[in-house]
Simulated scan of single mutants.
Amino acid sequence: MLFRILEILALLQLVAANALTFNLPAKEAACFYIFTEVPDTQVSYYYAVQQGGSFDVDYFIKDPSGHVLLSKNKERQGDLVITAQHPGEYEFCFSNEMSTFADKVIDFEIKFDGDAHQQFRASMPEQPNSKPIEHVDAMKRTADHIDQQLEELKRSLQYYKTRNNRNQATVRSTESRIYYLSVLEVLLMVGMAVLQITIVQLFFKGSRKQLV
């Protein structure tokens, strides 16, 4: 019975997902591809710039025919769902060409759901004296609810990870500015001291010439 429950839960969660973190150098672009076999597939699309520059990046999405479905410039993060209306290969591209020298570190995830519920129902054999389907629907709703809560938790963790990385970058930038400002202040103090000594020496030299 336990094995059957695990099998049902596995069938209910038939999803394909890809998540990665990659480095995007300045003046370059990177593209990723997914292939859908079922029309009108819902594709979840999440990204966040973790490090680099102003934490922004350009991106665009193309369908199998090469048409641009979505295009944004200088975005820091995004979490959206698109409908892949036609089966085929979809292209997701990030561009850092607007940056002169700053590399970007990007978290990126694509997730598309197949028609898992219909596959599950089709795989269920007809059995005599079987219980009503309501208990299966209740189990399906419970699994969907757990999956939704896990997805919300993952999104919250991704959000806090992004905030933490950006705050650390701000702290490092502030520390660097304080350090260089302190060095500049010391150099100015040394320069002022040298200038004062030079002025005093010139003053006394002039006074001695007048006495002679």
Rank of each mutant, 00 (worst) to 15 (best):
I82M: 02
A102R: 11
Q13F: 03
P87N: 00
I106R: 01
K154C: 04
C31E: 10
Q85F: 06
Q127W: 05
E97K: 12
G52S: 02
E185N: 15
F204E: 03
R163D: 11
R172A: 11
K74R: 11
R4I: 10
L150D: 06
A193N: 06
E152W: 07
T83R: 05
S130I: 03
I199A: 04
E7F: 13
L188V: 06
Q149C: 09
R4K: 14
Q13A: 14
A138F: 11
K62Q: 09
F60E: 04
F203Y: 09
S99R: 02
D113R: 08
K72S: 01
K27D: 05
L14V: 08
S65L: 04
S54K: 14
V186S: 05
R141N: 12
V81C: 03
G114P: 00
V43K: 00
L69E: 02
L20T: 12
L195P: 07
K131C: 15
K205E: 12
V212M: 08
N165P: 07
K62L: 09
L181W: 09
Q77C: 08
A19Y: 11
A169V: 00
S156H: 14
L187S: 10
I34H: 05
Q127T: 07
R141Q: 13
G88C: 01
L12F: 01
E97Q: 15
L12Y: 02
S44K: 11
E91M: 08
R166Y: 04
F32D: 04
L6N: 12
V200Q: 10
S99T: 00
P87R: 00
A30Q: 15
Y47C: 01
L70N: 04
Y59G: 01
K27H: 03
E185I: 06
K131A: 14
H135C: 12
L6F: 13
I178M: 07
Y59K: 02
L195R: 13
A10R: 12
A116Y: 02
F22R: 04
A116I: 02
V212Q: 14
T100H: 14
N18S: 11
G206E: 07
N165E: 12
R76F: 03
A122V: 10
P128C: 11
D113G: 03
A26E: 06
E175W: 07
L157A: 15
I197L: 15
K209T: 12
L20H: 06
E109F: 10
V183W: 05
S71N: 03
N129A: 09
E97L: 03
E28G: 01
C31L: 07
Q51H: 08
E152I: 08
K27R: 04
Y90D: 04
I199R: 06
G88N: 00
R172F: 12
V171K: 08
A17V: 15
T174Q: 11
T162L: 08
D103S: 13
I197C: 15
L188N: 13
C31S: 15
T83M: 06
Q119D: 09
N73W: 13
D137M: 15
V212H: 10
G88I: 02
F60A: 04
D103R: 08
N129L: 11
E89I: 09
L187P: 01
C31Y: 07
Y46D: 14
E7K: 14
M189T: 14
R166E: 08
E37G: 10
P125R: 01
Q51T: 08
L202N: 15
A143C: 09
